[in-house]
Design a protein around this nucleic acid. Sequence first.
DNA 1: CTCAATTAGTTGACAGTTAAACTATTCAGG
DNA 2: CCTGAATAGTTTAACTGTCAACTAATTGAG
Lengths: 163, 163
Amino acid sequence: MAGRPMDAETRAVSDDHGAIRLWLRMLATNRLVETRTRRLLQERYSTTLPRFDLMAQLERAPRGLKMGELSKRMMVTGGNVTGITDLLEEEGLVERAADPGDRRAWLVRLTPAGRRAFAAMAEEHERWIVESFAELSGREMTTMAALLARLKSHVRALEERDA
Amino acid sequence: MAGRPMDAETRAVSDDHGAIRLWLRMLATNRLVETRTRRLLQERYSTTLPRFDLMAQLERAPRGLKMGELSKRMMVTGGNVTGITDLLEEEGLVERAADPGDRRAWLVRLTPAGRRAFAAMAEEHERWIVESFAELSGREMTTMAALLARLKSHVRALEERDA
DNA sequence: CTCAATTAGTTGACAGTTAAACTATTCAGG
DNA sequence: CCTGAATAGTTTAACTGTCAACTAATTGAG
């Protein structure tokens, strides 16, 4: 039973079903990249991943997004979006504008300061990610993205079935 | 680098580097499977993913684990492990036993009730994961696991370089 | 038109998470 | 042995996240 050295995740998992093994490896890898990104965002820009994520969504939607659209795109609950938006608003990086067509809704937009702050962060953030994924060839990244796309829509279908 | 103009939607998709696209897809897929698993754990066993995860680590280490080992294997900080262990201890599912060799440390173990509870959950949990990943063939899962293994150790190396 | 059902968003309670400061113990060089 | 540095774990503050209950506005069936 003595073999070559293994890291914790490898050891923990080596006798599980393939699907479990893959899932645990996805979790571990994800956590690793996420922790690294969070640390860098904190060190370089004193900000956090969810705030960066929210701003990234807004940057792609210059006319603004309703809270519910943010919630859907970020895949988090509405209450969460309310909180993060509150903080970004206090920091002057986003603003809530009235939605002319629906008085219940807001249109959340980046302020000019928010757009400037995001541009600076986004460039460096992209470098970090490119660096993290530099181990994989373009072809391998394409393969993985395709497998993930299928997995994602399969799980989404399962969820809709249960709903 | 200057190209012809694009509308916002096109730019959002095609300007992104392959690494960013892949990373966003990993995040989304992960979140989807995680949300589903969390929901099922809550509905069927009134428990949570971190508690399940901690118990899974202990189940593989019958002699118990020190807090620090739990922290390393779960890839979370020590304070987090303290909190989750406190709750599981209140529920009677794990216990802190003194480490005979080090009075600073605990050996955390599943109680008999914890072992029973975990066995019931684990079987069903494995079914959920197998079902989620049923879209991929065994060969595809192997491919993806291999790519993730390389990605993981690359990022781990980056982290060690920075440290 | 009217009102019940739905939808958009907020709030509050609680769990999970991190980073940093702290306590207690162990370890190692002198 | 002593003592300063390192290690194991806990605590605290701030933030992220969920869920359920709530308010306000919209919608649609009759």
